[in-house]
Simulated scan of single mutants.
Amino acid sequence: MKKNITWILGVLLLLLVLVLVRTFNPNLFKRNVSEALATPSEVTVSVQELNGLQDSCLIVELDAENQRFPNSLAIPFNQLLQKENKEKLSSLDGKILLYSADISTSSKAWVILNQLEFEGLYILSDEENPEELKYKFQPDTTIRLE
């Protein structure tokens, strides 16, 4: 009887430890999906609009080896969640413009930082309208109905 109670208490203790580790994880996403989807649709700023911004902003370049903008902060994408880099980002005032030569990298960084409750995040894009479809739709011709 004591052996069974010991096993049950051991399993419950293990579950409690796992719940506590998950709860106090600093990289745990804090916003739910509805809040992330309720953000403004205008999260992209083009390089052409950069000079017209009246608010203070800082560009965070995610491609550290190819810095394009002067006075920008270089944080490689794979080091974005390191403690010192998160502290740098949280201490910034104004808009944070995330830039990478590949807009998908900037988008991934935006999603991650948005879920970690960073405010004032924008994606800096080389293109005026990066979401515009640029290719003509062509159906798949490899499979033909007989």
Rank of each mutant, 00 (worst) to 15 (best):
V111W: 08
P26R: 05
L92S: 05
L15T: 05
F24P: 04
E35T: 14
M1S: 09
S56Q: 13
E49T: 13
A109C: 10
V60N: 01
A74L: 06
W110G: 01
D126T: 13
G10P: 08
S90H: 11
K2Y: 07
F118L: 13
L92V: 11
S56A: 12
I59N: 06
L13C: 10
K86P: 00
K30V: 14
L58T: 15
N25M: 01
V21L: 11
K2T: 08
S90M: 04
D55W: 01
S91R: 15
L116W: 04
L50P: 11
N27A: 03
F29V: 12
N71S: 07
V47R: 13
E146R: 13
L113K: 11
E131R: 05
T44V: 15
Q54T: 14
M1P: 05
E128S: 10
S104R: 13
W7V: 15
L80R: 09
P130M: 01
I143G: 00
A109G: 06
P26V: 08
S46K: 03
N66M: 10
L62P: 02
E131I: 02
F137K: 12
L73R: 06
A38G: 14
L50Q: 06
T6C: 12
L80P: 01
I5F: 09
L13M: 10
R31F: 04
P76C: 05
D93T: 08
T23Q: 11
A36R: 12
K95Q: 07
V19Q: 10
E128K: 13
E128F: 00
S125K: 02
S90A: 11
L12D: 02
L18T: 10
I75P: 00
